[in-house]
Design a protein around this nucleic acid. Structure first.
Lengths: 240, 240
DNA sequence: CGTGGGCTTGAGCGTGGTCAAGTTGGGTGG
DNA sequence: CCACCCAACTTGACCACGCTCAAGCCCACG
């Protein structure tokens, strides 16, 4: 569990034993949250980097009138911005979607690594670049993909990200979020997510049932979503 | 013109003379492009960092069937990812929207700065973090804002970004893109952008005419867009 | 056994898309 | 200097994807 971050970064760059040790040393200050709690809120000053160990979290923004948009999912092994603490205040909130275990890494430790360890400093840059790539792909989905394509694309992305840290074989994985959460991530209404899910299931490509996702036909799911895995930059290990 | 990057970064962090000199030294290898040309294409290996000096560029992705989504606008003073070259290949393209002047900065120069200059290294991190914040806000717009709100929000954002590098007083600025470009950025059709633009004009808040944007009532435009400038993290100079 | 959150279904509607036909206007060549 | 051209913009008619509201169902949990 503690080495998920290592596994994740090793998709991008080779780590030596000392680097791995340094990363493992970050896993302390463990915090547990219930589903639906905020990790940090818009307006707060970020003081530490949050590393997800178990469960799912999200980054979200809320408009004045209550409309909510989830802009990122955090899976086990994900860091919520290696360098947030450079900013004065959060312009969005982080919240748990499931029971959550996370490590709160003091900013000094991250800053120390960035100043003193070239490999890990590069790894953090790569991690940041890839998170940004994901954010861009979400922008594409919301701007130009239809509801079924959006869902299909998200499923492809999540499954591959979980695979890159060894949490799935690529055909079946956890999807422990409500349809309302999916709706807020995909820019749809919960009702429409429900109907689209049924439609996808009817095609036989994929099924989401009691918080588990099963992919029956990855080839065709990817074709439907127009999913091109290159934006995740995982080639070092998982290939596609 | 060459000091736009300095002005931009000084919104985030204080620069000393030597830092400023180092940045000014990056402005060479000047390239000029006509509107609609690609700077670099999806699949290419990034070898340098592109710095916009004059004109507008964009980052975009194209789906297999031709649907296009612009995921970012680059204005004068903007760098297209300080650290792209860490990635193996581009998962999107960069293109010009207007006649464009840019400096192609060799990756070694950026890498040298990041390795050797703490202040500028931090400045590049901040620049990257803020670009990502912008990307998130676009995700929110596409997911949860209506057509008129999206346009209004984009206008607020662009105008403030231009103000932060001294290219507008905040009430009137260049907007040298076609309605089709706006449509591709906002996840709308060109026809609907046209109609929404007329609607906004009818309210008297704002007008877009022959590539110039005029904001008549910033207060109400921001209210309509639910625009909160804090995500741009410009407080050091421009406040709001 | 009751409760409440999440899921499902139906009906009606509206925002925004598509297609197709003009219109405008800046730029070029004769 | 004018005529022409083409890209950008504009308008209308029609349509569909996805939203809202409302009611009912399922089932995990206390």
């Amino acid at each position: 569990m503690a080495d998920l971050l290592c596994r994740k970064l090793e998709n991008f760059i080779e780590l030596r034993g000392a680097d791995r040790q340094a990363l493992l040393g970050l896993t302390k200050n463990i915090v547990r949250l219930k589903p639906g709690e905020d990790i940090i809120q818009e307006g707060d000053a970020p003081r530490c980097v949050n590393l997800v160990l178990e469960g799912w979290a999200c980054r979200y923004k809320q408009l004045e009138d209550g409309r909510r948009q989830i802009v990122a999912f955090f899976l086990p092994g994900d860091m919520c911005d290696p360098c947030v603490f450079l900013l004065d205040e959060m312009s969005h909130s982080l919240g748990s979607l499931t029971p959550l275990t996370l490590a709160r890494i003091p900013q000094e430790e991250i800053a120390g690594i960035i100043a003193g360890n070239t490999t890990l400093s590069k790894a953090f840059w790569l991690d940041m670049l890839v998170s940004t790539e994901v954010q861009r792909e979400w922008t594409v989905s919301l701007g130009r993909r239809t509801a079924d394509e959006r869902l299909a694309h998200l499923f492809c992305e999540i499954c591959l990200r979980l695979k890159s840290v060894g949490l799935t074989n690529g055909h079946e994985c956890e999807m422990p979020v409500t349809q309302a959460d999916l709706a807020d991530a995909l820019g749809l209404s919960a009702v429409h997510v429900n109907r689209t899910l049924q439609e996808l299931r009817a095609t036989g490509f994929v099924e989401l049932k009691s918080r588990r996702l099963t992919i029956f036909d990855q080839e065709r799911l990817r074709a439907l979503a127009m999913f091109n895995p290159s934006y995740l930059h995982l080639q070092r290990h998982t290939g596609n």
